[in-house]
Amino acid sequence: MKETIRQLTEAFGPSGYETEVTSLIKTMITDFVDEIKTDVLGNLIAIKKGASNGHKIMFAAHTDEIGVVVTHIDKEGFLRFATVGGVGISTLVGNRVRFPNGIIGVIYHEKADWKDLKIDKLYIDIGAESKEEAMEQVKIGEFGIFHREFCDLGNRLIAKSMDDRVGCAVLVEAIKKIKEPRNALYFVFTTQEEVGLRGARTAAYDLEPDLGIAVDVTITGDMPEARRMEVSLGKGAAIKVKDSSLIVHPKVKQILMDLAEKNKIPYQMEVLEFGGTDAGAIHLTRSGVPSGAISIPTRYVHSPSEMIDIRDVEASVDLVVALANKELNELN
């Protein structure tokens, strides 16, 4: 499990350019699914057919991560950039970025007060000595990610892009564990979540599921003087009640809570007052899809060092597996 998370978090996949991640996942799961395909937006869709009278469940974990995109290369070879997805400026200065061909750069700032530090006062230095040299290595419009290695601290793990490679890892593990599911399972490794839940929207349209479940990260409130949030690391899978993109269907919430209780899976309730997940896009597809989300509690979300607890990941896998095998007639 930890090895799966390591491989996934070390892969390159800013929004719109997720192929390395989807290819990696494909090699991990091909032997365990009945069918596998991609669509126009690059979503990877893996299918386990299940029993003929089961419900169609779409599980979504997004493969993309936040990052940067080069917008300008100046005479001295410094790069200017825009952010891809919700990147906090405080996480940038001194941070390193990596481009697809392995080029590494460091982000720093023009002289300025921290208070009015804006993105256009930051630049990336890839060590080039001229514009020409820089342009041989990157071009305008090149997407990059934050460069950071995976660390195993025991129960706790740190890596970049735990959001949402840990969700991908949950689905990969679940795919391996689920043998003959009662329901028809569509595991969708989605693209472009960080820029507006885009991949999930077109995938859900195509699949027309009966139930949509996003597996994604959520923030915690268990750090010093943290924002009020009753989710903690190590206390189990978080069952979402709402976020800005979705109010979880009351029946779906109840199904997940009952499953956790029945199977003694540790869980906590999540009320997120901002942010969204793929389920937000899924539930508004066509004439509506009852949807919910299983969240993995994560500290320092959208920083290069996102921390999770492996026990919460295991609980999330168990919950996905339990749902895959549950008869869902109450959704009719």
């Binding site: 109010i247 539930h283 508004l284 066509r286 004439s287 509506g288």
Partner: peptide
């Protein structure tokens, strides 16, 4: 109140 959500799906139907 949370984003015109019901109107989207009911109209589709």
């Amino acid at each position: 109140e949370v984003g015109l959500r019901g109107a989207v799906t009911s109209t589709y139907g």
